[in-house]
Structure formats: structure tokens, C-alpha cells
Design a binder for these strands. Sequence first.
DNA 1: GTGGTCTAGACCACA
DNA 2: GTGGTCTAGACCACT
Lengths: 243, 243, 243, 243
Amino acid sequence: MSTAPGGLSPVRQIAAHELVLDQLRRSIESGQFRPGDTLPSERDLAEMLAVSRTVVRAAIYVLEREGLIVVRRGRGGGFIVQAPVYDAGTERELRKNRVAVRDAFDYRVIVEGAAARLAASRRTARELTQLRRLLKNMETALEASLEDQTPHKVIEFQALDSEFHLGIARAARNPSLFEAVSDARSKMWLPVGAIFGRLEDNANDRHEDVLDAIEKKDGEAAAACMQAHINDTRRTLESWLKR
Amino acid sequence: MSTAPGGLSPVRQIAAHELVLDQLRRSIESGQFRPGDTLPSERDLAEMLAVSRTVVRAAIYVLEREGLIVVRRGRGGGFIVQAPVYDAGTERELRKNRVAVRDAFDYRVIVEGAAARLAASRRTARELTQLRRLLKNMETALEASLEDQTPHKVIEFQALDSEFHLGIARAARNPSLFEAVSDARSKMWLPVGAIFGRLEDNANDRHEDVLDAIEKKDGEAAAACMQAHINDTRRTLESWLKR
Amino acid sequence: MSTAPGGLSPVRQIAAHELVLDQLRRSIESGQFRPGDTLPSERDLAEMLAVSRTVVRAAIYVLEREGLIVVRRGRGGGFIVQAPVYDAGTERELRKNRVAVRDAFDYRVIVEGAAARLAASRRTARELTQLRRLLKNMETALEASLEDQTPHKVIEFQALDSEFHLGIARAARNPSLFEAVSDARSKMWLPVGAIFGRLEDNANDRHEDVLDAIEKKDGEAAAACMQAHINDTRRTLESWLKR
Amino acid sequence: MSTAPGGLSPVRQIAAHELVLDQLRRSIESGQFRPGDTLPSERDLAEMLAVSRTVVRAAIYVLEREGLIVVRRGRGGGFIVQAPVYDAGTERELRKNRVAVRDAFDYRVIVEGAAARLAASRRTARELTQLRRLLKNMETALEASLEDQTPHKVIEFQALDSEFHLGIARAARNPSLFEAVSDARSKMWLPVGAIFGRLEDNANDRHEDVLDAIEKKDGEAAAACMQAHINDTRRTLESWLKR
DNA sequence: GTGGTCTAGACCACA
DNA sequence: GTGGTCTAGACCACT
């Protein structure tokens, strides 16, 4: 939303190690790697990310200082993911950015709603099965988390949740849209989920509604359920902030 | 939800001059600078883009080689935007990418529809006035282009068209959404429009419908009209490709 | 004595990177750097040529695009000289420029002949020794090239040949003359030699005659032998072109 | 005669105005423009030299400060060439550079000798006529200068002399050789001639010998005479320096 | 006051 | 310690 003549906005060079840092942080925070897990080796990371080991090291170093991982040397060592610590700082951040939060939810409603609508007509049977399986796993995880509210369990749920939403976006078969969903989620997800832990206990009902609509190829219903789900989340967060 | 383990995808360092190149190309192709216009001076561009002159020059050099601009030296000189050349190659490209074209339109329908809906409730009076003025200018340009179908006139129309759509997106007051609209339009880069010249002569009626709905703050109608408008364009292009 | 009034001829600014390009190209083509060799590092070149790295890079970039060198990054990397490719194009060039070739040989006869004459009276014992050693190395290289006619071996011979001729010119102790010889040789750029490979296998006898005369301080004989040698080369080339 | 690895020597960027300055200075000093003459207008010079007026001005300004020209404004004005002033400084210069002077003469002997030899076989009748005419004019100028030893007359002789030598070099029909002669002369000529004014009174006899040999197509004689002539000049200069 | 070129120094990624 | 890129500033030539 630039106002500069010609729509030109400043260009920012991002160093490779920052990009790597972002990716790793995001992977950890979104639960793709969970506390106690070992990240791939430096060499593997370097190859997966198509950068040199130097760059990976630079990112790892920052993660270590942040306490997100610990580096254990020697045989059986590696980069061990730590349980994250959410402090008051995160909350303060959120409060300061209420407009941004509102915008982010609005945007999610738009793109995820649209994704659900398209997915309803385009999903394959195979995709449907996978989504069902995810749903089931989430239920299990949710039950487990009710008893054991360690961050570990919460994060496990989050990881599955993320996969579910992205799975729908992928079933919509529109690259730009998938990217938009993915983007919207990565902008927003992690602080929110992490903060209010298991509060989303009714989330899975919503998920089920969405998936049922998609199964019936009812695009409008799918979109509506998805939007309702996201707006639920929004309300939960907002009421929590108003505490 | 990429297929790589841990959701890690290769990192790509993008050189600043490539980013600048992208921005400039986009500005020109979306009609923000029109043939005959002079781009801001090297020094101004450098400042606007927050990079050094060297970087700007690297981008300018490519644009020059591509024939998008010519460079004139000395006082009163500068970077002069050239009239683009639409050749059979562009058409061939389009044909090869029919799926991509469909996806691009789908995406536009989603994001521009949503933008129109939000704009209906959020636009200021001032924005409304500006959009009205743009509509009027487009009518004038359209009439002129009916008599004088030079690329110049057509491009003038496109530039206004672009401003209109982006204006609505801006009135929606959601940065991510604005970016998405902007992105969607430049992907499809509306030079495509130039191919089928004035065929869009009913575009302005659609524009008027959209704006009327926005004026009445009727979000649903605004979204519907915008979507209908984009689908019109899609149909025009597709029938032209089926020729 | 140009035809313009007042003997004034257009002035041409030559960019530093073009001068650098010329020097590097010449160094490579005259065999001072041979295929497989690594050029001095960017920083060293910059210092040697008394320009900034930027300028060196501009020249290197062209050499890379021309395929004369390849760039390898990282420690142990650098600019690696490639084996030149002599194609039909080179031959066509030569044919088109028969007058230029004749002139180039005439000029070489003049300046290299004079250089040999002066060298006979001015060479030091030390220079003589060095020239002898070069001669010996050339013999070895020549024999090797008879068995193994790879471009590599041929070019090795050329490099030594070049050193020999330039060594004589240097022994003449006249800066202008040295420059003239150097210039004459690089104009005719002796890669031409590479075309007809080992055909010059009697070159070394001629070289020996020249050096013997220089050793005896017989300027006239030295000049005569050198001129005969160059005219031999000329004849070889011309008969090859007449094939 | 560089000793740097790879034969690389520092590159020097020469500003356009310096090149222009050189050309103008050389034109004046070699007598192409004589004291009292008006140089071409700024505009004309700019066109002839293919540079902008700015650059010409920069050069003119230096010439003015050096006293080589005076600038007269208004109608009938222009750049008026002044009689040069040769001071003791020039002599001192020469003394310090005895080796350079020797080398320069050696080089002239080589290239001008060779030029005369080639000219003998290649000159056209037309060229011969022109050279004869030059010779005649030189005689007239020489006689005049015997009575009136003003710098003006001396310079007139020099200008013709220069044309004569370059004319022979051109008749040799070898571009490299012509350039070499031109170069050799411009390095050396002017200070020498200017210093000892009319002392070269027997120069014309030598010129005649050279031209006669060229007329008879006797290359060897032409070369010999030219070399003798140049060596005469050398001796004259050296004895003058030994004074 | 525009573009064209160069410089000196810095930081980075690479191996 | 290599190449790759960028910066900030300077001077120049053009019109």
C-alpha cells in the first residue's frame, strides 16, 4: 500500500542467513519440529536449503542464543529443539498491533474461505482421505492435551492444525491462493496458538464441519464454515486480550 | 506444507538489482508510467528504492536492453518509457499457459471481489470522489480510443483501469489484501489487455456498477459486480484465444 | 597526418574496463596465461592494473561470457583460463582480412628485425642465458607436441615462443620498440598459430639461428634471421589459407 | 617493457579534455596552426573532435593559461595562437632525458627508415608529386627563415617538414607503421626543432636524397638516406647539448 | 541537472 | 582467502 510515485517502494536485501533463520524458526514454532526433536544435520540443512554450511551455522547460532535450540556436540549430538517460552513480551506485541491482528484475520477469512470453496469442487478422493486422517489425529492429540497440557502436546495439535488448513488450500489447486494462505498463516499463527494453548477445544468441531462440506462438494457451506471457524479464533483471541 | 522434510525449502538470495528490476518492470507494465513518460531520475529512483545508484543502473540497463525504455543523456534527458511491442510471441505464451491464466483469473476474482466488499464499508468520501474522477477519465479515454486506436490511447485506458482497481483495493484498508491484488494484476500483467485493445468497451459499465455499490456501501453487490467484471474480461480473453 | 583540418581527429574516451579487458585478453591470447592457469585474484589484478575491483570485474565478466575463462568461487577458486576454441569463424576472419594479415607481417618483419639487430649489440650475458633456456624448453615442448597434439601442448609452445620473441625485444633496450613488438604480436594474435598447430616445427631452427647471431653480436645476421623466420611463418599461414 | 606477472601494466584513464588538450597542443606545436592563426570555433572543434563543447572549453582554458593561445571575444574573435616561448626549462628537460632522447632517435631510425623503404616500392605518382611540392615549399621557407629567424618562420618550416615525413610514412601503406612513425615524431619532434631553430639548414638536401631514391623505387637507398638524415639531426642535437 | 564511470571500502557467501 | 554484491561519494561528459 505504497504511496510513492509510480508505486515504487524501498527494496530490502535479505541476507541468506536471515532467510534460513526465518525458515528454521517457523518450522519449529509451527510444530514441524517439536521440543526434544533433533533438527537435520548442518550438512543436510545446508543441502535442503541450498546454501552453504556457513550460512546454516549463522542461523543456528542465533537460534541457540534465543534458546530455541541447544547444540549438543559429539556422537548422538545435533541441534535439539527446546520447549519454547512464551513470555509477557509476546502478549505486549499483540496488544500493540491490534489493527494488524484484525487485518490478518480479515485476510485469512478471505483467502482461506475462498480456498475452502474451491477445494469443495476440486479436491480428490485421496486428498479427502488425508484430511480425514488429519482430523482424527487432531482429536487424539486434543484429548491427550486435555490431560497433559504441556506445551509439547499443544504444539503437536498446532502442527496438525496447520497441516489441515494447508491441505485444504492445496486442494484448491491454485498456486497463488495456496501461497496466500500459507503466507497469511505464517504471519499470524504461531503467537496466537501458543498463547492460548488448548482454548481452541471446539476447533475440531469446526474443522469437521468444513471437511463435511468439502466432502459434499458444497463450496458455499465450506467457505462459510471456514470463515466461521476463523472468526471464532479471532473472537477467542480478542476476548483473551480484553481480559 | 511443502513436501520437503520439515517444510524447509531452498532459500534464494535475490539481488537488490533484481528486486528493483521487478518493481520498475511492474510499474511500466501496469501502466503507472506510460510510453513517452520519463521515469524518475537515477538519483531519485535510488532514493525512493533505498538503494545506491549502482543498483538502479543495473536494473535500468536490463530494461534498456529489453527495449522497455530508452536512455537519453544530458539535461532534459532521462529514462524514456517506450511503447511496448506486442508480438505473436505474447500470444503464444498465453496459449501455452492456459491453466496459469485460468488460475490467475480465479485468484483475481477472489482477492478483487473481497477488496470490493471491504471497500464498500471502509471507503472514505474522498476515496469515492477520486474513484469517480477516474471513472470519468476512463470514459473520455475510451471514447478517444474508439477513434484513435493507437497503442498509446489503449495504454492510457489501461493505466486508468489499473488505478481504478488498485484504488478500490486500497480503500479496502488491508495491506495484505492490497498487496495480493497488486500482485495478481501484475502477474496477469495487464498488457495482455493491450492485445485485445478496445474490446473491453463495456468495461466501464461494469466499473460503474462496482462503484455504485461501493457508494451505497453494499459490500455484497460490490463484490458480485467486481467478480462479474473480472469474469467478463476472462471470457473476452478466452474467446479471443479460441479464435 | 589525418585528412581533417588541423590534423584533428575525433577523440575517443576509452573506459578503464575496456583497457583492462584488452590487457587481459592479450595476456591470455599471447599465452602468458595458459589454459588451466588461474589468473591473479580480482584484488591482485585490481592492484596490478591500478583500478578498482569493480573495473576488473566488468572486464572479467566479458571474458567469462566469451568463454575465455571460467569463474570458480570459494577458497581455491578464481578465474580459470580455458582452452580456446578455434572454429571455422577464425579462419573466415583471416580470409576476410588478408590485407591486414600482410600488413601485420610486414610490420613484424620491421620491428622484430630491428629488435634482433639491437639485441645483438645490447643483450647481457644473463639475457642470453635466459633465451637459451627458453630455446631448450621449446624444443622439449615441440617434441612433446609431436606426440600429443592437444591444444594444451601447442599453446605451451606458443607461450614459450612468445616469451622468446619478447625476450629479444626486451634485450634491445628500447621501450618504444619493445612496445611496438609486443603490439605487433598481439595484433596478429598468435592464437592464429594454434590453427596450424605444429606446422611450425622448423621454427626452432630459425630461433636458434637468431640466437646464435645475437650471441656473436652480429646484428645484421640477427636481423636477417629474424626476418626470414617471420617470413617463413607468413608463408606457412598463407599456404594454409590457400589450401 | 613491463615486468609485472602476466605482462599487466597499470591502466590509465585519460579524461576527454586531456586528449583534446593534447591534440590541440600538438597541432599548434607541430605548426599546423601557426602564431596569429585563429583556431576553429569552439563549435567546430567540438564537432571535429567528436566531443561536447564543454570538453573543448576545458582544453582551451588550459591552453590559454599556458599562453599558447589568447581568447578574443566578440565578432572577429576566437582563439588566437601565440608565438611559443621556449625557455631554459625545455633544455634542462632534454639533458635529464638523454637516454630517452637516444632511444627516441633509435626508434625513429627504425620506423622511418622502414617507411622510406616501403614507400619506394608502394608510392603512387600522385604522392610523389605532393612530396615534391612539399620539398619546394620547404626550400622557400628555409630561405625566408635565413633572413627572418622569427619563431614564426621556423615553425612554418617545421610544419612542412612534418608533413613531408608523414607523407612518406603514409606512402608506405602500412597502418601500423604509419602510426608508429606518427607516434615517434610526436614524442620527439617539437622540443628539438624549436630549440635549434634554423640549424637544420642542410636538412633539405637530405630530404631531396630520400625523395630521389623513392622516385627511383630504390628502397635500400631511400631507407639509408632517411636513416642518415635522422642521425644527422641526432648529432646536431647532441653537439648542441654538449655545448 | 541528467546519465556514465570509477573508487574505496564493506559485508557476505563460498569452499 | 576467493568471488559477488552493495554503498557512498566523486568527477566527468552531455545537452
